[in-house]
Design a binder for these strands. Structure first.
Lengths: 137, 137
DNA sequence: ATTATCATTAGTAATTATTATCCATTATCA
DNA sequence: TGATAATGGATAATAATTACTAATGATAAT
């Protein structure tokens, strides 16, 4: 294994990147797999995992470590915040300027060397809210 | 299974709560298991998981969904922020007033109903920083 | 006090998400 | 063209967590 291997943009890798950039739903690896399979029926789940990992190492996609059991992926690499639904676990974007000052404010309060921050809002998505109110009435 | 079962403060449950409140290290379930075993050698890992879950549902401890592969637990239920080390994954507290305004600012920008937010700083802990500089020199 | 009930336990099996391995295939470049 | 390295698909392995089960111990009712 070379330290700096030549990256090939294979069909599989390209389709994964394309499909991820198409959506704003922050899919899990398995959700990606289901979508990709429609275009490449022979692709394996391992390939999806491997390529999402590689693409995220290259900085072409974002691997999100938001709450829940599964990692999620984002085709939008520009720094932004997220909202997660407590009920269904879905994740949406929250387009609000990221606060860089807060890292400066936090730095004197810890002996960790702060590199970045991640802010996640937690709430209920419209669909789940709708489902809840229907249950009550 | 009753919808509202009577919960008993068993020895196991109490020791788990005690030991978690003693530390500020935000241990994983397995780390808790290792500590508890010193006092209750016969306890099983499943019991630790089950009780941490129950205690967090009761609001007596906090289940943290910070990055990394394992969930972490916190005996301090007062809302506060955390710092996570990119290298070793350890988690520290960051005692800075939590910003409630930010939820109000974010609300108009999403159709999710925001309940709370979680802010995590990401950096390098003193130990790992030390280890790094030693490797260079 | 005795018994019936029910929460809880330890131990183990099962599940879920992810990563690693193996070998055939394909692309790249000398 | 032929050598070499990257990649893919299939499958096995691993890690973290959850579910299941029979036994145990507390609680409440008689």
């Amino acid at each position: 294994m070379d330290a700096n291997p030549k990256i090939r943009m294979t069909k599989q890798r390209q389709v994964i990147l394309e499909e991820l950039c198409k959506v704003t739903s922050h899919p899990t690896a398995d959700e990606m797999y289901q979508v990709i399979r429609k275009r490449l029926p022979k692709i394996s789940l391992g390939t999806v995992y491997r390529n999402l990992e590689i693409l995220s190492e290259l900085g072409m996609v974002l691997k999100l470590d938001v709450g829940g059991t599964q990692k999620r992926f984002d085709g939008n690499v520009v720094n932004h915040y997220h909202v997660r639904c407590t009920d269904c676990g879905c994740v949406g974007d929250l387009h609000m300027p990221t606060d860089l000052e807060i890292e400066q404010k936090a730095q004197p309060l810890t002996d960790f060397q702060i590199k970045r921050h991640s802010l996640e809002f937690i709430g209920v998505c419209p669909e789940c809210r709708e489902a809840k109110s229907r249950r009550v009435s």
